[in-house]
């Protein structure tokens, strides 16, 4: 009993998280077919002979149509820019919360976490009402006389950046706060005593020591952002190319499960390095 119970999480995550990837890999080598399920089996027993048909066609297809390469690159670009902006907003916020008086710190942290608890879908939806042609933002700017023509933001890449930064900001602030609040105050004092100005102290002491938080927060934003589907679907336009959208369309519109699987496998390969990096930072933090 004591031996078996701890096995439960292994079995569950193995069955419903690891094995699905094996199935995904298998289907990515299958031939599409008009059937249910819409792919041909990879191996077959017939008259005592095992026939294995590994089909690289789906992967070759991904290299032939430029849509896929362009979408991968554009997803990585959008995710990277959004991560950088999130970091630039999140760092000063985390820094200020970490330096706030103790009583106020928990309230500020709670205010950061609270939006994360309210629906992600509804928070993305909120931006449609703000950004559209006769939305809150344009109405405000026009009534102030700052612009005559409504700004076109909705259905552009800018709206996608905004959506990602907005929804993933708490993921950036929390790990940053965790490292910044553990920062030894004596080090900062020593730096000041030795004559360093606040900015020098920040650049030479605070920033390097908070790098684990910077990396962890950046990976927590970057990795899911690469495969984001809901944000480009609601805020992006027809020119917004993201690989999550491509995968979704292959599956739901073209009903091409093998190509969708190949797209997913390549995405996992692209994300393998950032995920390994995140895991390293986290296991180091656990040991500390």
């Amino acid at each position: 009993m004591r031996r078996l119970v701890p096995l439960v999480p292994f079995l569950w995550l193995g069955l419903f998280f690891v094995i699905p990837f094996a199935v995904l890999l298998k289907i990515s080598f299958s031939e599409p077919a008009i059937a249910m399920p819409p792919y041909l089996p990879l191996w077959e027993w017939a008259d005592g002979v095992l026939t294995i048909a590994i089909n690289l066609g789906n992967y070759i297809f991904l290299t032939e149509d430029p849509l896929y390469l362009v979408s991968y690159l554009s997803s990585v670009r959008i995710a990277a820019i959004s991560t950088l902006v999130t970091l630039l907003i999140g760092y000063p916020m985390a820094y200020a919360i970490a330096r706030a008086p103790e009583g106020r710190r928990n309230i500020l942290l709670m205010l950061v976490i609270l939006p994360f608890w309210t629906s992600f879908l509804l928070r993305v939806y909120a931006w449609i009402g703000i950004l559209k042609a006769n939305g809150v933002l344009n109405n405000a700017l026009m009534s102030l006389g700052l612009i005559d023509q409504p700004l076109v933001i909705l259905q552009t890449d800018i709206a996608v950046y905004l959506g990602i930064v907005y929804t993933y900001l708490p993921f950036m602030i929390l790990p940053l706060y965790a490292t910044l609040s553990r920062l030894d105050g004596d080090l900062l004092e020593a730096s000041a005593d030795l004559g360093a100005r606040p900015l020098t102290t920040f650049a030479t002491v605070t920033l390097p020591l908070s790098m684990p938080g910077v990396l962890a927060g950046s990976m927590l934003v970057f990795i899911p952002a690469v495969g984001e589907y809901v944000i480009p679907a609601l805020l992006g336009g027809p020119d917004t190319l993201m690989i999550g959208t491509v995968l979704w369309n292959e599956f739901f519109l073209n009903r091409d499960w093998p190509v969708a699987s190949a797209v997913a496998i390549v995405m996992v390969l692209v994300l393998a390095l950032p995920i390994a990096l995140l895991r390293r930072i986290q296991s180091r933090a656990e040991k500390a």
Binding site: F17, L24, L220, I223, P224, Y229, F251, A264, L271
Partner: peptide, 9 residues
């Protein structure tokens, strides 16, 4: 962190 489209598919 795994994108939801991959987990879902």
């Amino acid at each position: 962190v795994m994108p939801e489209v991959i987990i879902g598919l």
